[in-house]
Design a protein around this nucleic acid. Structure first.
Lengths: 198, 198
DNA sequence: ACAGCCATGTAACTTGTTACATGATTTT
DNA sequence: AAAATCATGTAACAAGTTACATGGCTGT
């Protein structure tokens, strides 16, 4: 949804064409998330289908311009006004994985936590190194780059903290001898034999 | 990808059928992310198509059991062994939105930051209240619930910190008078006139 | 009788993503 | 002449998600 809305927001500044939209998107996001050009044209088609943009004129160079519609502008304003609900109900893939691993008999949750922690710390190092690698960019790109890298750093730091916290929590539970998985949720009758994990 | 892999991981414990897989999934994730039953059957079809599970026997109650294959088991092990690369290249929708807003002329990035901050703080409050609401659950569900809620708290806290940090950064830039958007990336020749923002 | 849960499934659709084809223009 | 960039598009697919249809069984 966010790539789509980002492109629409760029179009809200004035008509543009596919290839340039990609350049603009990458510039305004610090070239952090490379975007396949094909996706632009797909997205434009879909935006047109939904009445948020209209295919406009073609200039002397053959550039196919798209104009935002009133409905499109309204969508942009609504998007910018309303917060992202990545909090409410948003799926956190890592949390899901760890929860599954931690409640699964025969799975060493601490191993999973460990390898994730190592990877996260490694990535954190890379990010800190990368912070100073974005100085040679133009205004918008440099700003975007630093925003996005900071976001990643904050997120990964929180990730590591949570992994540590979770490891401690699991260790405590193990001591208190809470056997989480003696029994699986029972079906009406007869449940299949458990298969040992390779 | 994670719902799919979670279901496959559950199937790695032994054969099960659609409806029960949903119950198991919800229990093992603290009922945090409700799963439409239909998705289970879709996912099972796709897992079968990919050779990771096989449609097994039907018991006396009409339950259609699925068995994991060797390839499926291997996938599960690989999934648990390898870290999630939500760090590397993973799209952070909020960061993308803020980056777009911050580099966009005519957009009040501080307003966007403010409303997001308010929403995040509100959600954080809810999460802290929710922490103690999961005590009346059975072992696995209570554990999963507390893991996931903690993950959300850590994440939202980091979110708020980043929002504050970003607001400060933008304020500093404004003082330094860096005009980020005097010029859009230039096309070969002739770019369209800018349209005023509604 | 009716509500609600158990259970399976199908069809349609969303965004994101990639691979590929095609050609013009520009740079080396 | 060859390589790179600019530019538009198509086709296919992934995973997630929802709405709907269908029916049995259970408890009030």
């Amino acid at each position: 949804m966010s790539v789509r809305m980002s492109l629409l927001t760029i179009l809200d500044q004035g008509p543009s064409y596919g290839y340039r939209l990609r350049t603009e998107f990458e510039r305004r996001t610090g070239s952090t998330w490379p975007l396949n050009v094909g996706q632009i044209y797909n997205t434009l088609e879909r935006l047109e289908r939904d009445g948020l943009v209209a295919r406009g004129s073609t200039d002397e160079h053959g550039h196919v311009f798209y104009d935002i519609t009133d409905a499109g502008s309204a969508e942009v304003r609504a998007w910018l006004r309303s917060p992202m609900e990545r909090s409410q109900g948003a799926r956190d893939e890592l949390a899901m994985k760890i929860a599954i691993a931690a409640t699964m008999p025969g799975v060493e949750a601490s191993d999973v936590l460990q390898s994730q922690r190592t990877a996260s710390l490694h990535h954190l190092q890379e990010l800190r190194r990368a912070t100073y690698a974005g100085a040679d960019r133009d205004g918008a790109e440099e700003l975007a780059w630093s925003l996005v890298v900071d976001a990643m750093i904050f997120q990964v730091e929180a990730e590591v903290r949570w992994l540590d916290h979770t490891e401690q929590l699991l260790a405590e539970r193990a001591v208190h001898d809470i056997e989480v998985d003696r029994e699986v949720t029972k079906p009406k009758r007869g449940r299949p034999a458990k298969v040992p994990v390779g």
